[in-house]
């Protein structure tokens, strides 16, 4: 791989973390404001995709500290686990369970479910990008 342009390099290094943080913010605000796991995941994937375009898939995997393919599985299992929680409590599968936490407010399994969606989307999008890059 030939060396990327300096502009791209600097932009990617600064932009990707910002996009990741924004994506988390979008993920967590999603329940009450526009956003959510799907959009958040796509945002994060956009940031990581940009990084990968600049530095290549290997560096991106190092940056992420986890193989995106694994994120797909983890995400699906997280969403499934969120659904099972209600079921283990004797309610129908995927029933939301909520608790009140001090300072944070209502927290429930739908949020966990959304995190699962978020992770799956990142994993799927980034690993597909990598597959294109490495093909």
């Amino acid at each position: 791989m030939k060396k990327p342009s300096l502009l791209l390099e600097m932009a990617a290094r600064r932009q990707t973390p910002v996009l990741l943080i924004v994506s988390l913010w979008v993920l967590f605000r999603g329940h009450n404001h526009p956003g959510g796991g799907f959009i958040g995941g796509l945002l994060a994937a956009g940031g990581l995709g940009f990084y990968s375009l600049t530095y290549g898939p290997k560096a991106t995997r190092r940056y992420m500290r986890i193989d995106p393919i694994r994120l797909i599985g983890i995400g699906c299992l997280t969403a499934l686990g969120a659904g099972l929680m209600g079921w283990l409590g004797g309610l129908p599968f995927l029933t939301g369970i909520w608790t009140d936490l001090p300072l944070i407010g209502k927290v429930g399994t739908p949020l966990l479910f959304d995190i699962g969606v978020y992770l799956t989307v990142i994993g799927a999008a980034v690993s597909m990008l990598h597959a294109f890059e490495e093909a």
Binding site: G30, H31, N32, H33, P34, G35, G36, G37, F38, P110, L111, F113, D114, V117
Partner: peptide, 8 residues
């Protein structure tokens, strides 16, 4: 956010 509530 109804869209999100429907989704999750």
């Amino acid at each position: 956010n109804i869209v999100n509530v429907i989704l999750v």
